[in-house]
Design a binder for these strands. Structure first.
Lengths: 243, 243
DNA sequence: TTGAGATTAACTCGCTCTGAGAAGAACTAT
DNA sequence: ATAGTTCTTCTCAGAGCGAGTTAATCTCAA
């Protein structure tokens, strides 16, 4: 933005090759004990018939507004936690033209199938393990989203975004187990969640019934006011992650 | 990207208002015990005379290549650590037109003043505490970069990117002190750095001379092969950060 | 109705990690 | 030489964590 040419070209963008800006959304939820992602089956070329992340062109609006709009077009997701994930703009990632896509990450409690309600009949929640060979570079975007959510569970109260407004410790533990793909020690998890200041706060009530397979009525909690977990809730270190 | 209109417009981008894509770089270094950022004094409107982050338009190249190119235009920074920070695209952030800017974060060891060598006579390293009222929304971009670097020092070996290929534990500690803005307990820091697997590895040598103000010749270390610090090197929790 | 099995919630125990402080050795500047 | 600084190691008490145990509670099936 320093040379005169740059300055002038800012007033005549057609001096440069046209670039399109889109948003793509990695919307995650935990259903049936699995981490699932919202995908769209593409009807048109390129990548017709392949699954893709929901997304579309950015209009005269902030980027996050565009992400929220695209998400609303596919589901009735409301009050979801939304954060920017990263931007993917390699030349050639879209065969038609240069497309720079700003990816967003959304977290939602378990919802009914979008196919029944949304106007996009081709939208579906898919377990992340089965979400492969997506259109464009969406495999890489999804992988970045999964890495992000796994890391953020450690040091933020993000898990509460995957459950309803009132939840049990066991429901919270199920979120961690689904996202991390490994079971957690129930007793230690319980102690840890209650000991981190501001993670959860008690409602003073319990569920109406015990668990489906027995056990006492668990107590209900709300999300607390913490933005960071101190100390963090660390998952066991894996050598492969460290090196 | 589902309606026919979207599909067609992808072949005729002028159906939408033109959008420019730029990169901006938050280049950080530690000089004189302070965290400093590379800034450019703008010569032209808008924001003439104000400082701004180095940046420019993206050409037919990957985004990271554009960031590296813009950085090279202002300094002789070589082999710097570069990572994507975030994308800033609010309408109105550039008064001329819609500009979506992908911000990158760069970390470099202490370097001579860019004014002496670079072709941009107006480039300068500025202590981050004095980098205020920048052009466009660069205050917000810089703030995001500072938050990122402070957090990443905790759980990655990023501090080694701020020092030379061989360094002392005290130099590493000075990086932490400069970035976090608080002194660290020398003994505990020493124990911690050496105990985290893969953070640093010994060269078996020491410096030629002791410190400027006395003390024995410190041992020299290289960066290790760890990508993550386990256990992390946490800074003391501040209540303001948590809530 | 009763028993088997599962779950919640709380506790114990040993180990590791951390913060704070201390101390000896090594080195520079005066 | 002396004073002051720094490097490096050590100690000690407290906090946190993984693993295991236990009592109470509840569902489901016999």
């Amino acid at each position: 933005m320093n040379s005169e040419q740059d300055f002038l070209s800012a007033y005549d963008p057609r001096a440069y090759a046209p670039v399109a800006v889109t948003v793509d959304v990695v919307a995650l939820t935990v259903r049936d004990g699995e981490l699932q992602v919202l995908l769209i089956e593409r009807g048109e070329h390129p990548f017709a018939g392949r699954y893709a992340l929901p997304g579309g062109f950015v209009r005269d609006e902030p980027l996050e507004t565009a992400a929220r709009r695209e998400l609303a077009e596919e589901t009735e997701l409301d009050r979801v936690h939304l954060e920017q994930l990263g931007t993917f703009g390699d030349p050639g990632r879209d065969p038609r033209m240069r497309v720079v896509s700003v990816a967003y990450l959304a977290f939602a409690p378990s919802m009914p199938d979008p196919a029944s309600g949304g106007d996009a009949a081709s939208a579906a929640w898919v377990p992340v393990a089965q979400a492969r060979e997506l259109a464009f570079d969406h495999d890489a975007i999804l992988a970045a989203g999964l890495e992000r959510v796994r890391a953020k569970l450690e040091y933020t109260p993000l898990a509460t975004a995957f459950v309803g407004p009132e939840f049990t410790i066991a429901e919270l533990r199920a979120v961690y187990a689904a996202v991390w793909g490994e079971d957690l020690h129930a007793g230690n998890f319980h102690r840890k969640v209650l000991s981190v200041p501001g993670f959860v706060e008690s409602t003073g009530t319990t569920t109406e019934r015990g668990g489906e397979r027995g056990g006492p009525k668990p107590r209900l909690y709300r999300a607390g006011d913490a933005r960071l977990l101190h100390p963090a809730l660390l998952r066991p270190a894996r050598e492969a992650d460290i090196r």
